[in-house]
């Protein structure tokens, strides 16, 4: 059964992440926890992107779902408290996904890719222009649980990753995987076999956007400040898709491995070159598509025979 052989590895990496705050790293502790936070969050985002990609759809709107979740949670957190705000943030992102998906998912795949890209650009414009978002100045966000617990953001981020991993594993094991794969490989054949193609695509997008929105909400509570250029950045969508492609598409282990490698690399690169670190992501994307279409996990599988 597919994905079963990877299960111990997945479990091991999750346990490592759960224990990270308690490992003795001395002066490096704070820095490593920061990097770990972003690794967890962006890996979750990457898994949520992969969930959509399994139906053959290229979502360039994950930056927008992330931003929608971040802004909704940030605006609601002072009134409602941390967890309800995060939940509503995820639901807002899901609502956006339903609007986008219901129009475009009936059409040929490229329309969805284009519309999703346009969707994220327009949401950024709206975040800049609408009266209640703070516009270009930005939006301050309170820390989770009024800052009572310093490790809260780390474990919230870990929670998002757990949810994303669980969803991904579920989609890999259940008959849903077959429906997704059939939709990806040939919509016409899938239809004939009785797969409700549009529904499968819409559900995948909805689940993906919920996780992305949740990740966005947690992100805002970590940075304590949101600006349209940061929250709705196209770079977020790029990260969300390069990580699974680098690690290995349509798997759960792939995004996990890709996330650990790439997000750590990115944190290092940001110290070195401030702007334009996305050059590396663009180059990786091209090289992997041309020479390594099955990603790192693909190499692993080949060695094992």
């Amino acid at each position: 059964m597919k994905g079963f052989g990877h299960f111990p590895l997945i479990l091991l990496s999750l346990v490592l992440f759960a224990l990270l705050p308690f490992l003795p790293f001395g002066v490096w502790q704070a820095f490593l926890l920061d990097v770990g936070f972003f690794v967890l969050l962006f890996t979750a985002l990457a898994l949520s992107w992969d969930l959509v990609a399994r139906t053959g759809q290229l979502s360039l709107a994950h930056g927008a779902f992330f931003g929608l979740g971040a802004y909704s949670a940030g605006l609601l957190a002072p009134q409602l408290g941390t967890l309800p705000a995060l939940l509503l943030g995820a639901l807002t992102a899901g609502a956006g996904a339903l609007v986008l998906g219901s129009v475009t998912l009936r059409l040929h795949g490229l329309y969805f890719a284009i519309a999703s890209l346009a969707f994220s650009e327009v949401l950024r414009t709206l975040a800049l222009k609408l009266p209640f978002t703070g516009g270009p100045i930005g939006l301050p966000v309170p820390p989770p649980f009024a800052g009572a617990w310093p490790l809260a953001t780390y474990y919230l981020s870990f929670g998002v990753l757990l949810l994303a991993t669980a969803l991904s594993l579920w989609a890999e094991r259940s008959p849903f995987r077959l429906a997704q794969a059939a939709t990806r490989q040939s919509e016409a054949v899938a239809r004939v076999l009785g797969v409700r193609v549009v529904q499968v695509k819409l559900w995948s997008l909805l689940l993906g956007s919920l996780v992305a929105g949740l990740a966005g909400g947690v992100y805002g509570m970590k940075t304590l400040f949101l600006s349209p250029y940061d929250a709705f950045s196209l770079g977020r969508a790029v990260e969300a898709l390069v990580i699974p492609i680098f690690g290995g598409l349509y798997t759960t282990l792939g995004p996990l491995v890709g996330g650990v490698v790439l997000v750590s690399l990115e944190q290092a690169l940001r110290l070195w070159i401030k702007e334009g670190y996305l050059v590396v992501y663009g180059a990786i994307l091209i090289l992997v598509i041309l020479f390594l279409p099955r990603g790192l996990v693909g190499i692993l599988g080949r060695r094992r025979g």
Binding site: L58, A113, V238, I245, E275, L278, V279, G282, I286, I289
Partner: peptide, 20 residues
């Protein structure tokens, strides 16, 4: 290749050139 891969490739090229 699959359409998804084609779109990812040109998208990667766009990101690469913009940031270069």
């Amino acid at each position: 290749a699959a359409e998804l891969n084609q779109m990812l490739l040109t998208f990667g090229l766009s990101i690469l050139l913009q940031n270069l």
